[in-house]
Design a protein around this nucleic acid. Structure first.
Lengths: 156, 156
DNA sequence: GTTTTTGCAAAGCTTTTGCAATCCG
DNA sequence: CGGATTGCAAAAGCTTTGCAAAAAC
């Protein structure tokens, strides 16, 4: 539904950022870029295996971690302790509103948070201040028909 | 060093919220309340064992989870996939600035974020919108003498 | 006395590491 | 060629579950 982004051409340059240009890394990064929003390493691995381009799970983990460390991907933790990765197009980052039912993610305007975080960083005396902001909820689609309430209906 | 809060009296009422009033649950909740900020289940278990009030790790997990489900505790994930729990005194919550070196946590003014999150919740079409905001950095103490830069010195 | 709760041991999960074979440059 | 990279298998870490003994009501 919401994931028909024309995935960019083979990201050779991006791959080069983390070491040698290998087929596997290109595959992993391409798959990452093709996904809108966040994906788990295992989900990505499954997708690749299904696509007929099997890449070792270890390699997927290593590649994604390397990209994150190179500043080309963001990481969040989902509710089960799984790490989700998202390709980061530019130097600045966005924040997303994640649907806890279907995993749909939608970017939100996060300027106020950025400003707030910068102010905290300035006035706190702390250095290297980083922030993680995660919004989650149930998207309109899931609310209506698709999923009754696998959550148990707990209020906020 | 920074955790000398006069821990509240035995929280019988709170315990009752999640089932039978048992010694172990009282111990766990009391320990949770005595901590300022977030604690991991294992850390709490260690502390209790050291205090001479050994409680099974399983029980700590179950009790904390139950409290969280009863809405009396908040949960965040730290960078290693560990779940950290914090007793929630009231219906509203605070956000903290965590030192990545020593674990010190300091509450920060989070009104702007709350306002922002509420606005997103209103305008997004999502329901049950929750937010997680985590600020981390290196506190002044750690910056000066204790730890040179175990982080590797990566900028924000 | 009955039902919940406890706690040990074992399993479950995601993620990381060791190491020989392989591929890139 | 030489060194980085791959991938399988095994390990690591945190959390959950099964089940008999113990405690609460």
């Amino acid at each position: 539904m919401a994931s028909n982004r024309p995935h960019a051409a083979a990201p050779s340059q991006e791959v080069a950022l983390i070491g040698r240009l290998t087929q596997q890394r290109a595959i992993v990064l391409e798959a990452l870029m093709a996904v809108e929003g966040f994906v788990g390493a295992q989900a990505l691995h499954n997708r690749l295996t299904g696509d007929g381009t099997p890449v070792g799970l270890t390699t997927v983990y290593r590649t994604l971690t390397a990209f994150a460390e190179a500043g080309r991907a963001d990481i969040v933790r989902d509710g089960n302790g799984e790490r989700l990765f998202r390709y980061r197009p530019g130097p600045d980052h966005r924040h997303y509103l994640l649907c806890t039912e279907c995993g749909l993610s939608r970017p939100v305007d996060s300027d106020p948070v950025e400003t707030w975080a910068r102010k905290i960083a300035r006035t706190s005396g702390f250095t290297n201040v980083r922030h993680t902001v995660e919004l989650s909820g149930i998207c309109p689609d899931c609310r209506e028909g698709t999923a009754p309430s696998p959550n148990g209906g707990r209020p906020a």
